[in-house]
Nucleic acid binder design. Structure first.
Lengths: 212, 212
DNA sequence: TCGTGTGAACGAATTCACAGCG
DNA sequence: CGCTGTGAATTCGTTCACACGA
């Protein structure tokens, strides 16, 4: 694999995309795909596909295309999906429950090994084979379970505190669903999923369609 | 408000951001903010804030900054949040339930007026004051309830079919949580939230931190 | 010949820097 | 004087177009 300088955020998202397409393609029994195939109808050009992949190496054969199985493996490797990741879920509310039970995570190699909440009524209960622990125990749980990645589904006003604790405990990647702009120390990667923001970009589009 | 040509996606997301900050600021009793304040610590520069706002008009006073309450109202107007939006939720699973009960939506003016599912065991049940209806009734429900916007939380293999039906029924904005690339006719705005993709961008960052 | 890999051209988005107004 | 609003400069990402290898 090539030496990597700086890959844009959107390029990484497109890799996830290619991966999904390759999984489907492999299941359908095809052995090779062209950059044209990978681009599909949908905003991506074949040139972009080739450029994206070329940042990491030369996986294709000229005149033929890319070998499906090999390219899938390579992209998994690039995205860091060649292994299992130990995940903690902080916030055992409805959204947390929905994410916990989403089977797709485990299939992709994300294993939720800890669930934490502040509510004493929830602490001690079990979700499948994971016992809900008190958020005050966060540092201990992270260490004991070898947590590398956290998902935060607490209310907005608790999120910064939780993120601080996670960062202090050595967690370096956090997916945040709380609708608050959070700050993290350098070395910690934070990614926000903000449902209200997504809806707002839709209403913006609806409001400004036609003549602006 | 100015004539709008083309506003980048990320600029719209930043507007949502400013809105949230302005709400907090107003609650804290401040009357004016500078572009520097709005930028906060966090990847945005004050120049960018000024540029973003300048696309829509001149809301600030030189030497003073922006009036908090007025700017908040203006941004709400720009984002199309000056009114209530009627939303349908398709897919009454765990994720759908979590979104349905998320209070933040209603506060922002999103009212879920219909819930649909394919499962006969769910159809007829009620969530709060909304009865779950059969997805086969989609066109009728959309029309009767005046649905303008839909959230799709079905399994991946049902999503395209649902989106087709929504588009045919006249719904012009769709927020999709199903992990599948969907196609929509022109005139329909689709926005994807893909949890696996978000996690993958985190593992990419973890895998390639330090020397690439 | 076909489709990749890639420098070069292009275009979009961000940052700079400062004129101008309160 | 302070801070906005905005052209100009720059950086970053995408597309073009074609040489080259299978």
């Amino acid at each position: 694999m090539k030496r990597i300088t700086k890959i844009s955020d959107s390029a990484v998202r497109r890799l996830s995309h290619y991966l999904r397409f390759l999984e489907d393609t492999e299941a359908a029994g095809k052995r090779t795909v062209s950059s044209e195939d990978l681009a599909e109808r949908g905003g991506i050009t074949s040139a972009q596909v080739r450029k994206d992949l070329s940042h990491f190496g030369s996986f294709g054969k000229r005149g033929t295309g890319y070998p499906v199985a090999l390219l899938r493996e390579q992209i998994m490797e690039i995205l860091g999906l060649g292994r299992t990741w130990r995940v903690a879920l902080v916030g055992a509310g409805k959204l947390g429950a929905a994410l916990f039970h989403y089977a797709g995570f485990r299939r992709q190699g994300f294993e939720i090994v800890a669930v934490l909440d502040r509510d004493p009524a929830k602490v001690g209960r079990r979700w499948a084979d994971v016992a809900i622990e008190d958020v005050g125990e966060l540092a201990r749980v992270v260490k004991k379970q070898g947590v590398e990645l956290a998902i935060v589904t607490t209310p907005a006003d608790a999120a910064q505190e939780v993120v601080d604790a996670l960062a202090a405990a050595g967690v370096e990647a956090i997916l945040n669903f709380a609708p608050r702009k959070l700050s993290v120390p350098v070395g910690v990667t934070l990614r926000d999923v903000n449902l209200a923001m997504e809806l707002e970009s839709l209403t913006f589009a609806l409001t400004h369609r036609d003549r602006g």
